[in-house]
Design a protein around this nucleic acid. Structure first.
Lengths: 336, 336
DNA sequence: TTGAAAGCGCTAACAT
DNA sequence: ATGTTAGCGCTTTCAA
């Protein structure tokens, strides 16, 4: 049978409220009473019911982490970091994934009284309007990977710098004709990667006709399959580029595999750069050159931002630095 | 401001309870009243508060998925499948990961009144005793990857068959000296992989002195690093085997990388077999030969088992078939 | 320093 | 067919 506060009160010979007071440290309590209560608590192994508490305090000590796809190791690694730091502060985290249904989740959060939510997801998978509803219901929100209004906290990777590092690296090797494999539409301004790619290309003096933007299609997946399809497109077009930068590592890996199967060598025939630096990027052979995202920092940073907002209401916008990891899928282009 | 049941009742001109009755379909209601209520509900966009409801029904429509490491794509893919099917039935899922702290989580679950929990984790990361506490508190439980008492439902992969398939495959290629890289201790009986390996080796008539069990060390991680270390050990011992089967793909990938760096070719010099068939196993080059686990089936099956138990109390033990995926990290051993 | 009592938003047993 | 009422287990205001 479940032990309640009343059981403890009875055992300790005090009023039920007193038990709450000592457990929450919300009142001066005599040493004697405190001891009586604590003894009973330990004896009965009493743990306050969080649902009941939540009903009155409107605090559930529960956070939601909303992700495009928990099966993607990139999100998995972020989730690990986020969860770890949330746990340290006593929060429970619900991970909400499942591509199409993100809106459904958002509605659920207010009914469940979560204290806060972090959204790290493809912007095409949810509506900002629904996020506003969270805010209206006093649920604190932190977003990554979208254009957000000032009133919503955010944490973003510095993709502009990342793309510049990537293109500079390729340029130094002598690449002039470079593709970008985007999981978004070319007109999308959600993501700064495309802009970063374009402006870096300009800065390096690449001809506009030499850069090739391969765009994604709804529902804008960013997985192995997407990368394969884009590689196929490059092959179909007769290999008009000597290098390609991809939206993420999964797409890069898919592309590499596709090229490999077509007998096109990476990096000899085409250099490939990914983005994210998932754990396996460095383990594959050849090791993937990629724009390294600090997933630990992103996950922990997102929590810190959320926590701060819950505690003090402060809304901040943070930027996380990224660093190109030069490995073995890039090299000088073959002379011809 | 939050809209409550009373607001709806007032707007519809009925008693608060009536609102509950129509929403829950728990009583005969005249069409007229039903319409009045539903109109008010839609007008005000009322959503019953799940915390309040949970307090009285003791049902939270919330499930916990307890995983060793959500950063490991194997678990990520399972989580995706589990979450998907839970969502279809209206459940919310909290993913609890973070290696050392699993016990901490288990305690939390009863305070949060989750309706059920699925544990797919390294048995060394939690105590069965704590699981019993869940059961005592009427939280339904399904476990995978551990030895469970009959009263606890389970879903297991048929590793025995998997190992037999793997060793038969190697044997057909002519391998006689084979290692097993375990993330567990050799004495561990949690996991059927070791047993499966040993009995398959016997069945195939391999000499006991030809098989080499490399065992893990506390805290029994099963990641890239572990695989690397074990590969080093094989190298240090002068390559006494021509093939190795690993506890999971991550370890296999780590091992392959380590061998590669030492100038030992896979599969020419040593054949490697993984286990899990994570998404990237087929994408890497060379593609990984691995014991394929049906993660979709495992995740969905775990939910189905849990759901059934919640609805009818029925406790079942299920076995999921596995299938060796022969790819490119295995070949005939070099003659010498 | 402690106790009593109201109420969080809901369900369900009891009345009408 | 509908309304009234008693809790669920807790926090917190008000009283002593």
């Amino acid at each position: 049978m479940k032990v309640t506060r009343s059981d403890v009160a009875k055992a300790a010979g005090v009023a039920p409220a007193t038990v709450s007071y000592v457990l929450n440290n919300s009142r001066q309590i005599s040493e004697k009473t405190r001891k009586k209560v604590m003894d009973a608590v330990n004896e009965l192994n009493y743990q306050p019911d969080l649902i009941a508490r939540g009903l009155v305090t409107n605090q559930t000590m529960q956070l939601a982490l909303i992700l495009s796809d928990i099966g993607n190791p990139f999100y998995g690694e972020i989730a690990r970091a986020f969860e770890q730091s949330a746990l340290e502060k006593g929060y429970f985290v619900s991970i909400c994934s499942g591509e199409g249904n993100l809106n459904h989740y958002l509605e659920n959060l207010v009914r469940r009284h979560v204290d806060g939510a972090v959204i790290i997801a493809n912007p095409t998978h949810y509506q900002m309007e629904n996020v506003k509803k969270l805010v209206d219901n006093d649920i604190k929100v932190v977003i990554s990977g979208n254009q957000v209004p000032d009133q919503i906290a955010s944490i973003e990777n510095d993709y502009i710098s990342g793309m510049e590092q990537a293109l500079t690296h390729l340029s130094e090797y002598g690449h002039r004709r470079i593709a970008y494999f985007s999981c978004f539409g070319n007109q999308s301004r959600y993501d700064t990667r495309i802009d970063g790619f374009i402006s870096a290309a300009e800065k390096l003096g690449l001809h506009q006709s030499d850069i090739l933007l391969v765009e994604g299609k709804p529902p804008y997946h960013s997985d192995l399959e997407t990368g394969k399809e884009m590689a196929q497109e490059i092959i179909r077009r007769g290999m008009p580029v000597t290098a390609a930068v991809c939206t993420n590592d999964l797409m890069a890996m898919g592309a590499i595999q596709e090229f490999h199967q077509a007998g096109i060598k990476v990096p000899e025939d085409i250099s490939i750069i990914g983005c994210d630096d998932i754990m396996l990027a460095s383990a594959m052979i050849p090791a993937l050159t990629t724009i390294g995202i600090d997933k630990e920092k992103l996950g922990r940073g997102a929590f810190a931002l959320l926590y701060r907002q819950i505690k003090s209401g402060e809304i901040k916008h943070e930027k996380v630095t990224v660093e190109l990891k030069v490995r073995s899928t890039t090299s000088k282009p073959a002379v011809r």
